[in-house]
Amino acid sequence: MRLRNPFGRKTKEFPSHLWTQCPSCGEMLFNKQLDRNHNVCQKCGHHFKLGALARIDLLADAKSFSETDADMVSSDPLGFVDSKPYPERIAAAQAKSGHKDAVLTGDAQISGIPVVLAVMDFEFMGGSMGSVVGEKLTRAAERAYSARKPLVIVSASGGARMQEGTIALMQLAKTVAAVARLDDAAIPFISVLTDPTTGGVLASFASLGDIILAEPGALIGFSGARVTSETIGEKLPKGFQRAEFLLEHGFVDQVVPRSQLKERIAFFLNAFRVAGQDLRWSL
């Protein structure tokens, strides 16, 4: 994965394809080492964004992930054109990210537990949810439902995709209805919120996990911070809409460092394990 220098400073000593500066502590980090550390700053623990493939690598057991609905691509329901036609934006995002759209879904194992895993990628049009994201997540939830496997969704999204208009908004209801069925059937759904998870994704399935985990420092909120600060006409307090803020206000269960995420998910899945009835309390 290629990381850009967040300050836009390109020094001769630190060419940006080799080095990345930590926006939190200022340390210059060697990209290869950063990759190995799953994009977490070794010095201060700052969590950089993680692409979908690296995320799957982090969470799924080796070679256990098999992708589903891999070739689904967006059509252009509204014939939407802003400064560029929507299909051109899709093509550009596909070229840039290497993905067909903003989510990868599939079957996987997490510490030996079979799950349905969905991972969003912010690189693809800001992780925005349109028809493809909505449909793939809905199918993932429906597959979890019929196979009675837990669902794990890792979100990274700026919200609904404007270029699909009200059709994009309806994906909120569609995905929520699908995870509601898991709730009815007592099939575990773990929602992981990463930087950033905002707007329509947070206002739908991402807020409805049986367990909601967040990565340290992740931006998580309903409204963009810019909108919120314009609404009140003042600057927002430090830490507003960060994972720790949501923990404090009661909207996430835990803030979990990336290095512990897999084992933590596995812990909860084991506790809820549907198949392992022998371990459950007889109530």
Partner: peptide, 18 residues
């Protein structure tokens, strides 16, 4: 607004839809 964020605007909307 910020108070709405503090009190879980997204959670309230998601739960209501659900």
């Amino acid at each position: 607004g910020p108070e709405a964020e503090e009190r879980g605007q997204a959670e309230a909307i998601a739960s209501s839809i659900q």
